[in-house]
């Protein structure tokens, strides 16, 4: 009796492990790597050109690590992301605030900003290249340009969403205009600022990769692009995996918690 119960309990746990959370993710990862390996080993002609096996990707990474290029590419890309994203956000927040505070200013500049937002950073790339050449400046400008708009628009709508009552209450307590901005509007817009930051970094991440590819600056984007040029598909796959994993880690462990924390902490949600 008891032994059967135990067995059932164990079985049940296995099923739970296989269908939920981390266990499922591990199974999924292992499964897809096996699938990838099977495809590359048995289904494809010339796998080293079209889909190298996981092993050769690992070897390629070991090789690049040994030569030191992997680390330097990776850090170059991250530094660009941080600088471009930070500057874009640092410009976007005050611009969004200015638009949110003043209807006249907003009515005036909203259409302009909307137009330039739809001119994607990638589309203006050729123009920037004509102006600044294939340089780091070009890549940084493209990143800055793409990360500026999401945060600016989010701050704008965040400021607008602060209830008028809060502003009135602060005014009756004797707050000056500046104090209203500091104590009511900025904190009230905090959740939107967090959402906007996450979006901006997401856009910036795409822009970094595209910019590096197009301008040929050393980094992950360039790494996958030159992988294609020099017929080194393992290097492309390695770069792609790194791009994806970096974003997932960044998003999951930094941006998302930041967003949900601010929404919870500063949120206007009245429970």
């Amino acid at each position: 009796m008891t032994s059967i119960d135990l067995q059932q309990a164990r079985l049940f746990k296995w099923k739970k492990f296989a269908t939920e959370g981390a266990g499922r993710l591990i199974i999924f990862l292992v499964g897809s790597i096996i699938l990838w390996w099977l495809i590359s080993a048995f289904l494809i002609e010339r796998p080293d050109r079209y889909l190298p096996s996981p092993l050769s990707v690992v070897l390629s990474s070991a090789d690049m690590l040994y030569k030191g290029s992997l680390i330097s590419f990776y850090s170059d890309t991250l530094i660009r992301l941080v600088i471009g994203g930070a500057v874009g956000i640092a410009i976007g927040i005050p611009v969004g605030l200015a638009l949110g505070l003043n209807r006249f200013v907003a009515d005036m500049f909203y259409p302009l900003m909307n137009f330039f937002q739809s001119v994607s950073g990638i589309a203006i790339f050729p123009v920037i290249v004509i102006w600044f050449g294939n340089s780091d400046t070009t890549v940084l400008i493209v990143i800055l340009y793409t990360s500026f708009f999401p945060i600016a628009f989010n701050v704008l709508s965040g400021v607008r969403s602060v209830p008028v009552r809060y502003i009135q209450a602060a005014r009756t307590l004797g707050a000056s205009r500046f104090q209203v901005v500091r104590d009511v509007l900025l904190p009230g817009a905090m959740p939107s600022i967090a959402v906007g930051t996450r979006l901006s970094i997401g856009f910036a991440w795409r822009a970094v990769i595209a910019g590096e590819m197009l301008a040929g600056r050393p980094g992950l984007g360039n790494m996958i692009f030159s992988g294609q040029e020099f017929d080194n598909t393992a290097q492309i796959l390695l770069g792609m995996v790194m791009i994806g994993v970096t974003w997932i880690v960044l998003d999951h462990f930094l941006l998302r918690p930041l967003e949900s924390d601010t929404i919870e902490r500063w949120g206007l949600v009245q429970r």
Binding site: R165, Q168, A169, A170, Q179, D183, W266, V269
Partner: peptide, 29 residues
């Protein structure tokens, strides 16, 4: 102005300030 204090019908206290910081807001200003 601070010579006239208002208590509104709906909750107009700031959700991102603790009770003490809300109550002290006028003095802080």
């Amino acid at each position: 102005g601070p010579d006239r204090g208002v208590v509104f019908q709906e909750h107009a206290i700031l959700p991102w300030r603790s009770v003490a910081r809300n109550i002290g807001h006028g003095l802080e200003l």
